[in-house]
Simulated scan of single mutants.
Amino acid sequence: MKAINLKQKHAAFSKLWHPHQIAQVDDMQVILAKIQGEFVWHSHENEDELFQVLKGTLFMQFRDRTEIVKEGEIIVVPRGVEHNPSTKDNEEVHLLLFEKLTTAHTGNVQHAMTQTEYPII
């Protein structure tokens, strides 16, 4: 049991759209990610996702609207809801995610951006 410095952990990697696991809490994982541009439309049939913006502004697209999530804010995407995280103006956004260990990166969608393994840092 040690404190985890999120800034130091984010500084340890540069790859975009590639989640890195920093902790586990029961059957949940705590993930850091850096994103830029647009991801891929997907949903998670059995899992909710929590996104916290640590740096920048996240644009969480849903089919009927886009929610703007600013630094220091969170958004929870309920299971089964199709979504597409994105950023604007080439901004790199730093995220903390909280999700079940069983959550697939892009749900049932297979895409060039899909990651199947999350490095532990």
Rank of each mutant, 00 (worst) to 15 (best):
R63A: 08
R79M: 11
V76C: 14
I4E: 04
N46Q: 12
V93N: 05
H105D: 06
A104R: 00
Q36W: 00
G80L: 12
I35A: 04
E99K: 00
F98M: 07
T102H: 05
E73N: 15
L97C: 14
N108P: 15
I120N: 14
N5F: 08
Q36F: 00
F59H: 14
D48H: 14
V77S: 12
K7S: 13
A33Q: 04
D26S: 13
A3P: 04
A3D: 12
L95W: 01
E117L: 07
E92S: 12
P85V: 00
D26G: 09
H18M: 05
V69F: 13
E91F: 05
M60F: 12
K15H: 11
E67R: 10
E92F: 05
T102F: 06
A33C: 14
K100I: 01
H105K: 00
T114M: 13
H10Y: 13
K9I: 02
I4G: 05
G80S: 15
V30C: 10
P85C: 09
V81D: 14
K9N: 12
I31V: 07
L95Q: 01
I22W: 00
T102L: 11
V77K: 12
H42W: 03
K70C: 13
L50G: 05
F13G: 05
G37Y: 02
T116K: 09
W17F: 10
E91L: 06
I31E: 00
Q61E: 15
L54Y: 06
G107M: 00
H18C: 15
L54A: 08
L96T: 03
D48K: 02
A112D: 11
N108D: 13
E117A: 09
I121N: 11
V53Q: 08
K15I: 05
K15S: 14
L58D: 03
L101R: 02
R65S: 12
A33D: 07
S43M: 11
I35P: 02
T57L: 08
E91V: 00
H42R: 07
D26K: 07
E71A: 09
H44F: 03
H111E: 03
W41R: 10
V53L: 08
Q21N: 06
H111R: 03
H20E: 01
M60R: 05
E47T: 09
L58A: 02
L58Q: 02
E49A: 11
V40P: 03
E49C: 11
L32T: 00
I121T: 06
F59T: 01
T87S: 10
I4Q: 06
L58F: 09
N90S: 12
V76A: 13
W41Q: 04
M60K: 05
F13T: 01
A12K: 15
M1C: 07
F59S: 06
T66E: 12
T114W: 04
L101G: 15
F62A: 10
M113E: 15
Q36N: 08
K9E: 14
W17E: 00
Q52I: 01
F39M: 04
A12Y: 08
Q110H: 05
R65K: 13
F62H: 14
E49S: 09
V81H: 09
I120L: 10
P19Q: 01
E38I: 01
E117Q: 04
E71G: 06
G37Q: 03
T87H: 06
A104P: 00
E49D: 10
E67C: 15
E117M: 12
T106R: 02
E38S: 15
F62S: 09
I31P: 02
H83F: 04
I75H: 12
F59D: 03
E47I: 01
I22A: 06
